[in-house]
Amino acid sequence: MVVESIPKAVGFIYGLLAFVALTWLWYSGRFTRRRAMPFLIASVLLGFLVFAPVFPYQLQMVVLGNAAALGSPLPMALGGLLAFIVLALVFGRVICGQVCPAGAVQELMYLVPVKKHGRAESRVPVAVRAGVFVIFLVAGLGLSVNLLALIGLPGFFHLTVASVSFFVFLSIVLLSAVVYRPFCRYVCPYGALLAPVASRAFYRLRRTDACIGCRKCERACPTGEADPSARLGECYLCGRCTEACPVEGALVYGRGDGKST
């Protein structure tokens, strides 16, 4: 379904504009899951239309040195990826939350009303993803193997239903109805780079003195990151914690001395 006549730069421009808009919504206290829905839908549509901004696959192409697939010079693509890593250090993983099509399609699938599993604290997924990241680097740099193509990330968005890899990633997407973002949390190589810096983000969700310790945010969080002791950068800014919080002003996005979620 990917329309080759549409420049991939359209996806990058959208990603930048969506990042700015979503960050403003969080910073101004106007972010809600309802307001995030148009971004999720637009991101998924752009994934199918131009296969961008699929940040993990762009990283894959940089590792393989494939400028043709990127649709831009390698230094420019690498610069863009590094820029969003810096932005994650400042504002958290906004790009993962609603902008990257790979994350957005899983976020939408998780809305399917079925019993959810895998809400344990986030250290196990982080460890698994770190191991996968090493394999990703060895496969790409040492063997010139496109690991994400084998998993079916491009095949899924290109709707290459004749390939086995399409059904591999389709299975991951279907799994995300019951397990929150399995690709993002266990596989994504770009997420492996974003998480460490996001754990130190200047702006992030924080508890204030208004917090009554009801722990509703912790029960609502699908990654375990609402636990103040987690701090592993696995907050995707989905908004479930702020939606569940019963006290206005107890959980805010900002910079300060408040306790981090």
Rank of each mutant, 00 (worst) to 15 (best):
V134G: 04
S260C: 09
R33I: 11
R33Q: 12
S176W: 09
C188R: 00
L74I: 15
P56I: 05
Y27R: 02
G191R: 02
I135Q: 03
C184I: 01
Y110M: 11
G15T: 11
Y14T: 12
P56Q: 12
V20L: 14
G131L: 14
L45M: 14
A21G: 10
F19V: 09
L147G: 04
V178Q: 12
G258E: 00
V138Q: 06
M1R: 06
L49P: 03
G258T: 04
R206N: 02
V86R: 04
C96V: 07
E225M: 09
G239V: 07
L59F: 14
Y110V: 09
L59G: 06
G233M: 01
T160N: 12
L251V: 09
R219D: 06
F39Q: 06
F12I: 13
L193M: 08
A9E: 07
T223S: 13
A210T: 02
R34A: 15
V173F: 05
V138S: 08
V54W: 13
H158A: 15
V94R: 00
G155S: 13
F183C: 06
L49G: 05
P222W: 01
R219T: 09
E4Q: 14
S171F: 05
S260M: 04
V145A: 02
F12K: 10
V173L: 07
P75Q: 03
G47Q: 08
L82A: 15
N66I: 03
A52H: 05
Q58N: 08
L82P: 09
G224Y: 08
R93P: 04
W24R: 03
P113C: 04
L87G: 06
P38E: 10
S43R: 03
Y110C: 12
V178C: 12
L111H: 13
G249A: 13
I151P: 12
S171H: 00
L108E: 06
V197M: 04
V164H: 03
S122K: 03
P75A: 02
L108C: 07
V44R: 01
Y27V: 07
S28H: 08
T208H: 12
G140Y: 00
L78K: 09
P222S: 04
V178T: 14
V105G: 03
C96G: 01
L108D: 11
V10I: 11
L25P: 01
A21C: 09
F167T: 00
V99H: 05
F19T: 12
G15W: 07
A83I: 05
A127I: 15
V247P: 10
L108S: 03
A127F: 12
F48H: 10
G152V: 08
G142W: 10
P222Q: 02
L159Q: 12
I6H: 11
